[in-house]
Each structure stands twice: as C-alpha cells, then as structure tokens.
C-alpha cells in the first residue's frame, strides 16, 4: 500500500487546516495590538471626556472617569468666546483664517507641482534631470535656513504678514515633495499612452488635461490629503509670516491654551484642541487608504 500512513488515520486531512482561536500566537499578537491601541488612544479619550465636563467636575481630579453631567459649554466657549490677547471671539476667527490659507495653498501648490511632475516625467527636455535634482535637494534643506531670507523676500514684495504671503510660502515648501510624488506617478503611466496622444495631435496642455489628469485622480487625492493636513497643522510658518489678525487656527489655539492670565480652563482647552484637530482628523478618516498610499509613493519610491 503506497499511502499506508494516510489510511491509518481515521480523519484524513481535507480542506482548510483547523486553527485554534486561543492559540499562543493569537494571544500574543492580539494582546500586544490591543494594548498598544489602548495606550495610544488614552490621551484622546481623556481629551474628549474632559472637554465634556464642567470645571467643578474637573477639579475632582478623576481625569479618566466619564463626565457625570455632559456639557457642551466648553466647546461653545472655545469656538466663540475664548480670549487671545484682546480678542475674545474664540477660535472661529482662526478657523476661517486657516480655511483662507489652506484652500488656495493646496490648490496652487498641487497645480504647479503636478505640471512640474508631468513635464519632468513625460517631456524629457534638456536639463530635466538637473532641475529635478535641484528640486529634490530642496526637500533636504532644513526649513530654518530659509525662514529669514523668506521674511525679507516677502517684506520686499509687500506681502509680509498678509495671507497671500503665507500661501506663497506653503506653495514653495510643498513643491519638492509634491513634484516628486507627481513625477513618480506619471512615470508609471505607460509611455505609449503619451506617444499615442502626441500622434493624436494633443499638445503639452492637451495631454495634461485630457489624458494625464483624468488618469491620475488617485494621486491628486493623495496630494490633497497630504497638503490639507500639512498646511492645516502648520504652526511655524503661520506664526512667523502672519500677524495676530491673520493667525491660523493652530497659532490661535496655542495662544488660548498657553495664556497665563486667569484660571486654566482645561475643558475649554481640550475642546479647542479637538476643534482644531477636527479637519485633519476628518481627512484621515475619509481617506485613510489614500493617505497611506501617498506616504508610500512619496517617500519610498525614489
């Protein structure tokens, strides 16, 4: 008998191999993951429960306990009444400033970078590699080196402390990484498609708008996610290149939380912080997969 060993066994192996749910491997794997997830989420939990408590309840000191009496007053106060310096109109002003900064910055930087990437990937002009190298080199220069020269530049342009000035700054700093992102994506589009479009009589802009762009919606989504979160979260450029009336939300948040006068209103601070984080948080939730793809596309592929 050739398969003696099989016939001896009453239950021949068949179909998927059975696996125990509570195996050692699973316990260690899921145990670790759950622990890390809790560890990571605790601060967020504390922020949410604190923001829903009144000050007397906070003073009791049980930061982990859920609110006994849920109140949305801190959220209202953070949005509309919290004071920074002499202004007491809450975070709303910063929010609208951030909107006014983010939308044009995202739009302009992506428009320019995608055209850059397209030109570098498809129209192999003389010196294309040199331009690309210079641009990528820009990604490795620390921001701090460029801060002061840019202050002077904006001052001479008459844009220092104004919103358009900050938009220019965001566009400049977004350029290297976004160009890399778009160039890498466009090089993955088969060259024959580009050739076919040329034979079909489409020019530089025709190919960009009618062939390349419609094929590249995923990478545009990735770029939007990267830029919206990056620019919304920016603090450094916001504080340097604008004045108090034009401060973005992050700077205003800092001014509310770090104000030294009066009582520390933890609940308002937590609510303000959550409000500020709401936009990037929403973006992450909407586009989780795309965001990961963007990071991978931009950073790993050279």
């Amino acid at each position: 008998m050739p398969n003696l060993s099989l016939t001896q066994n009453h239950e021949d192996p068949r179909g998927p191999k059975p696996r125990k749910i509570l195996s050692r491997r699973n316990i260690i794997l899921y145990g670790t993951l759950i622990f890390v997830a809790i560890y990571y989420l605790i601060p967020l939990y504390v922020m949410i429960v604190t923001s829903l408590k009144g000050m007397p309840e906070i003073r009791l000191g049980n930061i982990f306990s859920p609110p006994i009496e849920v109140t949305f007053e801190p959220w209202v106060k953070a949005w509309a009444q919290a004071c920074t310096g002499l202004n007491c109109d809450g975070l709303s002003r910063g929010f609208w400033n951030s909107v006014k900064i983010t939308i044009p910055s995202v739009f302009v930087s992506i428009a320019i970078a995608s055209i850059n990437g397209y030109a570098l990937a498809n129209w192999r002009f003389k010196g294309a590699n040199l331009f690309f190298t210079i641009l990528i080199f820009g990604a490795f220069i620390p921001y701090q080196i460029m801060i002061y020269p840019l202050v002077i530049l904006l001052r001479d342009l008459g844009l220092y402390t104004k919103l358009p000035g900050l938009i220019i700054i965001h566009t400049i700093f977004g350029m290297p990484i976004l160009t890399l992102l778009f160039r890498n994506y466009f090089t993955t589009i088969p060259e024959e498609l580009f050739k076919a479009a040329r034979v079909d009589g489409a020019g530089f802009w025709g190919i960009y708008f009618r062939v390349m762009m419609p094929m590249s919606l995923p990478i545009f989504a990735v770029a939007i996610v990267l830029q919206v979160t990056g620019i919304w979260n920016d603090f450094l450029f916001g504080v340097i290149y604008t004045k108090p009336a034009n401060y973005p939300m992050t700077v205003q948040l800092n001014n509310i939380v770090n104000s030294v006068q009066g009582v520390k209103e933890y609940n308002v601070n937590m609510a303000a912080t959550l409000l500020t984080g709401l936009v990037p948080l929403a973006i992450y939730f909407i586009s989780g997969k795309l965001f990961v793809r963007g990071i991978a596309a931009g950073a790993v592929k050279g």
């Binding site: 024959e192 050739k195 076919a196």
Partner: peptide, 11 residues
C-alpha cells in the same frame, strides 16, 4: 500609429 500595449485612453 498602433501600439503594442494598445495605449487606449482608459477614462
């Protein structure tokens, strides 16, 4: 011109 990979505009 006709290409090996067809090169049709997918959208």
């Amino acid at each position: 011109m006709v290409f090996q990979s067809y090169a049709l505009y997918p959208q």
